[in-house]
Amino acid sequence: MHIHNLSEENSILNTFLSEMRDTETQKDSMRFRRNIERIGEILGYELSKVLNYKTSTIKTPLGNANMMTLDDNIVLCSILRAGVPLHNGLLNYFDDAQNAFISAYRHHKHDPESFEIIVEYLACPNLENKTLILADPMLATGQSMVATFEALKPFGKVRNLHLVSVIGAQAGVDYIKNHFREDTHLWIAAIDDNLNDKGYIVPGLGDAGDLAFGEKLQN
């Protein structure tokens, strides 16, 4: 797997990420969502550098210009609900992409410290021979990313696969390395060292879905 950890270099991305982690700034849910979106734009820009391009002749008011334009059939798939602002950021750059959405959540049976990933809602176009960008802001254990991709397999075999996250845990990165093919790319804003006993990233930033859209009701 090709891992692109953008926080290893200084850029404005680290400012957006710092605001997302800060407990005071987190009180502004609109800013939290916007920072996810902006990080999605940055990750999308970096990702675009390894996609396929073709030469196109563009007619201008004064003549013709030969330009390199995107030549990938892209599908953006986000894991609900925290993935929505990240999806918007990517869509700002890949505005001709098709879109897919999937719900994946942790289901705790008896032990609150153990869980399984449940996939329920899924809307997806044909994926055969396309470039799939699978986005989930938090890459904690990596199980959601793997379960989501397994659920997408009946829609066709993708040509290229890109995974996009805001923050991941090293354990989650190691997990997906063992479950995705070697030519997969991971684009991520930061990788933290630890997971706690409940499978949350430390230091992380908390529950991205709750911070973006408010606390959810518990069953």
Rank of each mutant, 00 (worst) to 15 (best):
K130E: 09
V146A: 13
G142K: 06
N99H: 09
E120T: 12
I102V: 15
H108Q: 07
A100H: 02
Y105L: 07
P112G: 14
T148S: 14
L127I: 09
A135L: 08
M145Q: 00
L139Y: 06
N99K: 03
F94T: 03
Y121L: 13
A151W: 02
H87A: 13
G83A: 12
K130N: 09
F94Y: 12
C124Y: 00
A97D: 03
T148C: 14
N99M: 06
Q98T: 01
D111V: 14
F149H: 15
G142F: 08
T148R: 03
F149L: 06
N92C: 00
A135S: 15
G83L: 06
D111T: 15
I117A: 13
L132S: 00
E150N: 13
G142V: 04
T131G: 07
S144Q: 02
F94G: 05
T148V: 09
L152R: 05
L122F: 07
P137N: 09
A82I: 01
K153M: 11
A100T: 04
D136T: 03
L139E: 10
I133K: 06
L139Q: 09
T141Q: 05
E150F: 02
S114L: 01
I133R: 04
D111W: 08
N126M: 08
V119R: 01
R81L: 01
Q143Y: 12
L152F: 09
R106C: 03
T131D: 08
K153S: 13
A100P: 04
N129D: 15
V119Q: 11
C124I: 06
S114Q: 14
H108N: 12
A104T: 12
L152P: 10
C124R: 02
M145F: 05
L86F: 11
A135G: 07
S114C: 01
A97I: 07
R81M: 03
A100V: 01
N92G: 05
Y121W: 11
C124M: 06
L139M: 05
N92V: 00
F94W: 04
I133D: 04
C124S: 13
H107P: 04
Y93G: 14
D111M: 12
A97W: 02
I102K: 05
N126S: 11
A151M: 05
T131S: 12
Y93C: 12
L90V: 01
P137T: 08
Y105N: 10
H108S: 09
N129I: 03
A82N: 00
K130S: 14
G142Y: 02
L134F: 02
L132D: 00
R106H: 04
E128M: 09
Y105I: 00
L152C: 10
F115S: 04
L90N: 06
F115V: 00
L80Q: 03
D111Q: 12
H107W: 13
G142N: 09
A104G: 14
D96Y: 06
H87M: 15
V119M: 11
T131I: 09
D136I: 03
E128K: 07
D111A: 05
G142R: 08
L127W: 10
K130M: 10
V119D: 11
L152T: 04
D136P: 01
A104H: 08
N129T: 03
L134P: 01
S114F: 02
I133W: 05
G89S: 11
A123G: 10
L122N: 03
T148P: 01
C124P: 01
Y121C: 07
G89A: 08
K130T: 15
K130A: 12
F149N: 13
G89V: 07
N126A: 06
